[in-house]
Amino acid sequence: MLALSRFLVLALVFTLGLVLVSSSWAGPVKVFILCGQSNMEGKGSVKHLEQLLADPATAKPYHHLRNEKGWVERDDVFIKYNDDRGQGKLGLGYGTPSDRFGPELEFGHVVGNAFNEKVLIIKCAWGGRALAVRFRPPSSGKGDYTQRDRETKELVPLPDETYGEAYRDTIRIVKDSLVNIDKLVPDYNPNEGYELSGFVFFQGFNDIIDAKKMEEYGPNLANLVRDVRRDLNAPHLPFVIGELGQQGVEPEKRYAEKHFKFRQIQADVAQLPEFNGTVRFVKTSPFVVSNEDSFDGGYHYYGRADTFFQIGHAFGAAMVEMAQSSKKKSPSMR
């Protein structure tokens, strides 16, 4: 009889444990979209990350990324990268090239720790894409840019289909992912569904290097926020604008005016009255380390793992704040 009682107690404890585990992930899947060009693709060096972990003086912030079995893959955060760059549990392996990582890594840990629900990150990123051209939102209309004809070497108008190509691909990938979310999130419960919880846009290099593209960046960025919300049927979707901070807090003197102007354009869009409380400008320049080892020449935040880690953390922290406050509005749930 005593043995039976002990068995019943153990069975009850085990059952309660299952209930607690399952309930900890109850509710709609939180879906976050990370979008941009090469910095969002991810250029953080895994080699540098290994160096940071090997040094007791720098290892502490990164301990959660690796355990005795190797690099950690989360059981509650999942990712899909473009059409063909991979999908699965969040961990390393979702940068470009494959020995790199982007903001998605620490972003996923921040939001995964903040919410009880499972998380899906949909990452849409391609290098060399300007907001004025390939990311151009529909509300901005067709642009009037040119390219050099390969045969005649003369300047000719860009083909109409070039405008908005990356924007359309982003919307398509997001919608396709949501239609097939049961293939991306294990044990997906259609009765609980999903919730579009945030969009991060980290882009700008191909616009800052062209005066004309830079001049129209503000209106294009504001239209991007509006159009993404409209096309995803998420009118209050929290939106993070990642600062183009490649040059750091104090850019080179010859580039400083241009960089400060561009950053102000990005910040001003976040301050538009219509975006009050739902769009956040997040600085990345404070995380630039320019006087130590570089892992990508002078490009992409020097390819430093510590920089991309901190950028991802900052994006995640801002998104958590907005996503939590947006519950008072009308979240987009399916």
Results as ranks from 00 to 15, higher is better:
R280N: 09
Q247W: 09
A270S: 08
V200D: 00
D210T: 13
N220L: 11
G297N: 07
K283S: 10
N233Y: 14
P190F: 06
R172D: 03
Y302E: 11
V282Q: 09
R254M: 13
E215A: 12
F239Q: 01
V225Q: 00
K212Y: 06
P219G: 11
N180A: 06
R263E: 09
R168F: 02
E243T: 04
D296K: 12
K261C: 12
P186N: 04
Q264D: 13
D207S: 04
K212A: 14
V289Q: 12
V225A: 02
L221C: 11
K175A: 07
G204A: 09
G248W: 04
A270N: 05
D207E: 04
K261T: 14
K261P: 09
L237G: 00
D296C: 12
R280Q: 13
N223W: 05
K253H: 14
N189L: 08
K213E: 10
I171V: 11
Y255P: 05
V269Y: 02
Y255G: 10
I209R: 13
V179Q: 12
N180D: 09
T170V: 02
L184K: 01
G193C: 09
E192V: 10
D169A: 11
F295P: 03
F281T: 03
P286E: 09
D182V: 09
V200Q: 00
I171E: 00
D176Y: 05
P286S: 14
E250M: 14
Y301H: 09
